[in-house]
Amino acid sequence: MSTNEYTEKVMDHFSNPRNVGEIADANGVGEVGNAKCGDIMKIYLKVEDNVIKDVKFKTFGCGAAIATSSMVTELVMGKSLDEALEITNQAVAEALGGLPPVKMHCSNLAADAMHEAIKDYMSKQNK
């Protein structure tokens, strides 16, 4: 099974995911999903002065999907929105020490969900 190719870092984030949950007064929420493959990710942001003060996630998906969600929250915590927007899927996978090739699309979702949440925040600010 492809799962035994997971790095220690992936397993660490899978078993002790950081920042799981929801933010009641989130001002940016992003959701991406592909139920066909079996993953849906939701990222909640609390943004103040263009800085991500708090971030949480909820994920339906495989080990890699959960680990990448956790990792992305760790990567953006305390970052400015501009910095966060520069974090790519590739960067998330790399921060985890890589993902098995068949799982690369799971990492796509984590950064995308985070970007969606930032977009959601921005569109609310523009109103």
Partner: peptide
């Protein structure tokens, strides 16, 4: 919930099972 994360969790507890989830089939 999704099957592969369930299998991984069980495996961490020493239980070896299987799933019909896509993520386990490749």
């Amino acid at each position: 919930i999704e099957g592969e994360s369930l299998l991984l969790s069980l495996d961490m507890k020493g239980i070896a099972a299987s799933s019909g989830s896509a993520c386990t089939s490749g």
